[in-house]
Design a protein around this nucleic acid. Structure first.
Lengths: 221, 221
DNA sequence: TCCCTTATGTAATCATCGATTACATTTCAG
DNA sequence: CTGAAATGTAATCGATGATTACATAAGGGA
């Protein structure tokens, strides 16, 4: 089955069409296939990804030393998308109001997590590839955390917080948001009505509750 | 179970010693082996459980129709232990102070989750066996949730809460505690010092922060 | 242009796993 | 005592991750 030959410099059809012996960008295609696999709820197997790329079961191992490495690459791609969406949200948030930014961050985080549950799972669990397979992912995540720390520090500086224990607030905030995302992921929201938006609205409410809890009460309220 | 009585009430040697053809209580032994497997961080396979029970690879399927059923049984056992510990804690908490009970609940929850991470994972993720394999687990969990709802309702009745949106508070509380447990599970607490108790102390702080956030501020504070 | 090195894909194979089937042994009720 | 039911074994299947030997393509000197 060696391939059919010249004529196409890069077969653009991935759907079982004339593909040259060399694939073009198999690595990329494998990652995409794995992402799609995950999104479909199927478990990601190297062989299935290879199948979808119309390639032999051994081929992926030319691009990834093992399954973990593939999963780490998949996680990297998912994390990139996740982070991009968060940064968009932050750019649209008011620059001067730390708590509003905190809120926007949490909302963007949860929206993405709820709309891409399988990808969020891969990113966040660290159970899909050997711990430390992706230093990039770890660093990336640390930067997001640093972002929230800065927002809280700004809020404290402006006298917006009731407590001075920023570390505690930060961990509680992370736990709240992460917990909400994972509850959604792990099936702890039992068909909350058929309506989809309901979970997102509840996410918003929960974030607001948290912020109200840590914010210094103003005279007016 | 009836077990065998003559000579040995229960063959205590699991290590490849004279074992009668019929095992005694293979079902139980398999569940225990699987629990131990999980606790060791290994992934639970039917074959390995069978191996530890010194039994053929097919034997477990006489007691469980498939792997999912074994995992569901394992989850059931873990859940029983989890719940028992929570109930002990609640029995020691002051009966009249709903928020104190809420706090005790959260603390017991987190302590167990942090000391039995693998078992907590199996209980809470619903990723280890087909959704609905264990109605018992679902019901059990619903009862725990109902417990927290009652505590919050009591607190509201005594005028202890700032907000009347109990559902929101309850979900936020669950998300907070669940999120903290999962952060610990998923490696989001990067070696917080070598000290073990630190995470538990932080758990306490986070719970207190949450309660302070939802509690109606008293004049004195 | 030719050739050779390297990158990339294939084919064949292995061990492990969940699962099923046919068969053996034990247990227990009648 | 006996035969049916329960329980364990052995053999086997298909899928998976992984490795190895080999085939093919691509690209850079000479």
């Amino acid at each position: 089955m060696p391939a059919r030959q010249p004529s196409k410099p890069r077969a653009r059809r991935q759907t079982s069409e004339a593909r040259p012996y060399h694939h073009g960008d198999l690595r990329r295609v494998l990652i995409d296939a794995a992402l799609q696999l995950a999104a479909e709820g199927a478990e990601v197997s190297v062989r299935e990804a290879a199948r979808r790329a119309a390639v032999s079961p051994g081929a992926p191992f030319r691009h990834f030393p093992n399954r973990d490495a593939l999963m780490a690459a998949v996680a990297g791609e998912a994390q990139r998308r996740f982070r991009a969406e968060i940064e968009v949200a932050l750019n649209q948030a008011p620059a001067a109001d730390p708590l509003a930014r905190f809120r926007a961050f949490g909302l963007a985080y949860l929206r993405w997590a709820m709309r891409n549950p399988a990808h969020f799972e891969i990113i966040s669990t660290g159970r899909y590839f050997a711990h430390g397979s992706s230093a990039e992912l770890t660093r990336d995540n640390a930067e997001l955390i640093a972002l929230t720390e800065r927002m809280l520090a700004d809020a404290a500086e402006q006298g917006l917080l009731r407590s001075a224990d920023l570390k505690r607030i930060q961990i509680a905030g992370r736990a709240l948001v992460y917990g909400f995302a994972r509850m959604n992921l792990d099936g702890h929201f039992p068909r909350w009505g058929v309506e989809e938006g309901e979970t997102e609205r509840m996410a918003e409410g929960v974030i607001d509750l948290f912020i109200a809890g840590i914010a210094k009460p103003t005279r007016g309220a």
